[in-house]
């Protein structure tokens, strides 16, 4: 059976199943749908709880952040672990330190953009943009509580700022700023920070990731602010890991694991 026919059959069957399910969906945008406000006659859904109660408990107006980093912080920790795992998998696949592998780097690629042009237009733009991108990324991390964004987006942007350097110049420039050693260390460190915020409450006798109890350590007034500040800490951890791994993935992908040269 050719893949096209097989694909068509698979697609048709899946599509029918999915559409069968859709036939029963609540109307798009219905605030009374079970997902938005709970099953009829049942308890209100968790989303209502978050909207109504979470601010009082966490003092974080951005519901996405409070749910992400606190209520479902366990998910988020593993989301970061997924990133780390992907990074490690990519290193395991690509990273090669052997010297004799000339073919790995490939023949020296002629840059598609001429040298001067590259230096003047792209390089200069990048030099101007990178600090701004970085400060914006840090802003995004720090203000995840109030505005969209958070550790993950900030981390990606930080990583992207280094990718930008690598794209504009070459990989060595970027690696000079953010070496393999440091990104490997930061990747682990990020999750250690995250999990550390989870383990410290355990030491204090509460459950994993129970930030409320951290008020003793963070010296905040009340568990709410402890949660709020812990979320920031957790987001910083996420940002570190994501930044490191995003850049590392690019570095490895663009150089076929040799970390030399670049695109």
């Amino acid at each position: 059976m050719s893949p096209k026919i097989f694909a068509s059959i698979a697609v048709v069957i899946t599509g029918i199943v999915l559409l069968y399910g859709i036939s029963d969906f609540p109307t798009f945008g219905d605030p009374r749908s079970p997902a938005n406000s709970g099953v009829e006659g049942g308890a209100p859904s968790t989303s209502l709880y978050y909207i109504n109660e979470s601010y009082g408990v966490t003092k974080v107006p951005n519901l996405v952040t409070s749910v992400l980093a606190d209520y479902r912080g366990y998910d988020t920790m593993f989301e970061t672990v997924v990133v780390l795992a992907a990074g490690m998998a990519i290193f395991a696949i690509l990273r090669s330190t052997t010297k004799d592998d000339e073919t790995v780097a490939g023949p020296a690629r002629k840059s598609s953009i001429d040298g001067d042009h590259n230096r003047i237009i792209v390089g200069m733009t990048c030099r101007l943009a990178v600090p701004v991108v970085q400060i914006f990324a840090l802003y995004v991390v720090a203000h995840g509580h109030y505005s969209p964004g958070g550790g993950f987006q900030g981390g990606v942007m930080l990583g992207a700022s280094f990718i930008l350097i690598a794209l504009a110049g070459n990989l060595d420039d970027a690696l000079g700023r953010f070496s393999e050693k440091s990104y490997m260390a930061l990747a682990s460190l990020g999750i250690i920070i995250y999990a550390g915020f989870g383990v410290v409450p355990q030491v204090l006798g509460k459950n994993f990731l129970d930030f409320g109890v951290l008020q003793k350590i963070l010296l905040t007034d009340g568990p709410e602010m402890a949660r709020s500040h812990s979320m920031l800490g957790v987001e910083i951890g996420v940002a570190l890991t994501v930044m490191s791994i995003m850049f590392a993935i690019f570095a490895n992908l663009s150089s076929r694991g040799t970390l030399k040269g670049g695109l």
Binding site: R109, V140, G149
Partner: peptide, 24 residues
């Protein structure tokens, strides 16, 4: 939040990764 993430990841990093691979 999702849009922001998608902008950085889906449109940004993913595309860059695709391009890096394709060039390689």
């Amino acid at each position: 939040d999702v849009a922001f993430t998608e902008a950085t990841v889906g449109a940004g990093v993913s595309t860059v990764l695709f391009i890096a691979t394709i060039l390689n």
